[in-house]
Write a protein that binds this DNA or RNA. Structure first.
Lengths: 226, 226
DNA sequence: ATATAGTCGAACCAATCGGTTCGATGAAGG
DNA sequence: CCTTCATCGAACCGATTGGTTCGACTATAT
C-alpha cells in the first residue's frame, strides 16, 4: 500500500529521493491503482475469455470498486485494449536482448528459436493469444497490433540479422523476410498449432523445444547455408 | 421446399425412385430442416462468433421458429458442437484425393502444400478456426477433435507418405511425424498466422501460395532429399 | 482543523440473453 | 374427411450483463 509519488508532476510532495509517502492523484490517474486494475483484469480475462469475463468479477479480482474502475477505463473494450497494449511488449521483451552474445550463426538461431518457442507456447501467452484471436473480428486493430508486437517484431529483427549475415557472406538468403517467416514457423513446428487448438494442454518440455529448435536450425542451414 | 423422403425408414411413402413428395418426420428428425438450421447457424456463428451469436438471430437466419430449433438441438453449445462436427470433414475433403495422381515426390509435396494452404487460409475456414479457438477453454474436446480432423489428419497422411518414400529410398526422413509437421508449417509460412490474428484480411493470392509452397518443397528436399 | 476530492460499495437501471410454454396452424396419413 | 402432430410465433421467465448514480468515508493538501 506504500506508493511513491513518481508520476504526477503536479504533486509537490515529491522530494527527488524515493519516499514512501502517498500523494493525491487526480481521478483515474493513480498509476499504482491502474496497474492494480490491469492486474486483476488480466487474471479474469485470461481464465474466462473476453465475453465470459464480467466487470464485477474484474472489480473483485482487482480489489477496486466498480465506480473507480469506470473512472480509469470507460468500458470493457477500452479496458481490454489497454490491457493488451500493456502486456504485449512484456511478452516478448528479454528474448531479443539475450541473443546478442551468441557466437556462431547456428548458436544465434538456436537461441532465437528456443526463446521464441518457449515464450509463445507458455500457458499464459497461449491463453492471451486465444483471447485476442477470439475478438479479432470485433476489434480488428487490436489483433493486428498484437501480431505486430509479437510475431512481426521477431520477423523484422530476424530478417535484419539474416540480411546482414548474407551481406557478410555467411549465409545465402535471397529473401530475408520470407526466410525469417519460414524459420519462425519451423521453430514452433508441431507445438504451437496443437497448443492453440487445445490439442495439447501442457507446455512442451524444454527437451522438445530444444530438439525442435535444433532441427529448425539444421533445416535452415541446409537450405540457406553457404 | 421439395424434400424427398430418403431418411426415415418408417415412412411408407418412399418409393425407391427419387420422389419430390413430402413425408411426415418425427419431431426433430427431418434431415432437411436440420440442414436448414445448421446452415443458418453457420452464417450467424461465422460472422458473429460464439458468444455474440444469439439463438434468436440463428432462428431468423435459418427461417425456423425458436421452438423448433430447441427440438433439434438442446442448447446453444449442443448446436455449435453439431455444426462443427458437420463441417469439419467437409473442410478438408477433396485435398487428399487430388494428390494421388502426382508424379515426382516434388510434385506430390507441392500439390499437398498448395491444397492445404489454400484451404486453411480461406476466409470461411479462418473464421471457423477463430471461433473454435475462442471456445477451446470451455469445450476442450471440440478443439481437439477439430484439430484432429484438420491438421492432424494431414499430418498422419503426410507422415505415412514420407515413411514409405523413405523406405523406398527416395527420401531420407528419420522422423516422419516430425518432418510432416515441419512441412505443414512451411507450407503456410508467413500467411496463416497473420491471417488468424487478423493482420491480413484478405486471402493470399494463388501466386503467393504457390511461391510459398515451392519454397517449402525446396527447403524440405534440401534437408531430407537423398 | 478544515476543506477537498478520490475511492468505496451497494443499490439501481435498462437491455438482453438462453431457454420454456402454449395455443394456433396447416399439411400429412389413414 | 377427420385425426394427428410437427411446426410456428409470440409471449414469457429468471438470470445476468455492462454501465450509472450517489451518499459515506477517509486521506491528502492547505
Amino acid at each position: 500500500m506504500s506508493e511513491e509519488c513518481s508520476e504526477s508532476p503536479a504533486c509537490p510532495t515529491q522530494q527527488g529521493e524515493a519516499t514512501t509517502q502517498k500523494c493525491r492523484h487526480p481521478a483515474g490517474k493513480d498509476p499504482e491503482k491502474r496497474r492494480q486494475i490491469l492486474s486483476g483484469a488480466w487474471q479474469v480475462f485470461v481464465d474466462q475469455g473476453f465475453d465470459a469475463a464480467t466487470m464485477n468479477g474484474i472489480c473483485k479480482a482487482a480489489g477496486v470498486s466498480k465506480g473507480t474502475l469506470y473512472v480509469y477505463f470507460k468500458n470493457k473494450e477500452d479496458l481490454f485494449v489497454a490491457l493488451v497494449e500493456d502486456r504485449r511488449e512484456a511478452f516478448f521483451a528479454g528474448i531479443i536482448e539475450r541473443l546478442e552474445d551468441a557466437g556462431t550463426i547456428e548458436d544465434h538461431l538456436l537461441a532465437y528459436a528456443t526463446g521464441l518457442s518457449m515464450q509463445v507456447n507458455s500457458e499464459n501467452v497461449i491463453r492471451a493469444q486465444r483471447i485476442v484471436i477470439s475478438v479479432v473480428e470485433r476489434m480488428p486493430d487490436l489483433g493486428a497490433r498484437f501480431y505486430d508486437a509479437g510475431a512481426r517484431y521477431f520477423l523484422g529483427h530476424l530478417a535484419e540479422f539474416l540480411r546482414s549475415e548474407t551481406e557478410a557472406g555467411h549465409l545465402a538468403v535471397p529473401d530475408p523476410e520470407f526466410a525469417a517467416a519460414q524459420f519462425i514457423e519451423l521453430a514452433t513446428a508441431g507445438t504451437w498449432r496443437a497448443r492453440i487448438f487445445g490439442r495439447r494442454r501442457t507446455e512442451p518440455s524444454a527437451e522438445e523445444i530444444t530438439r525442435t529448435a535444433r532441427e529448425a536450425v539444421r533445416m535452415f542451414m541446409a537450405t540457406y547455408g553457404v
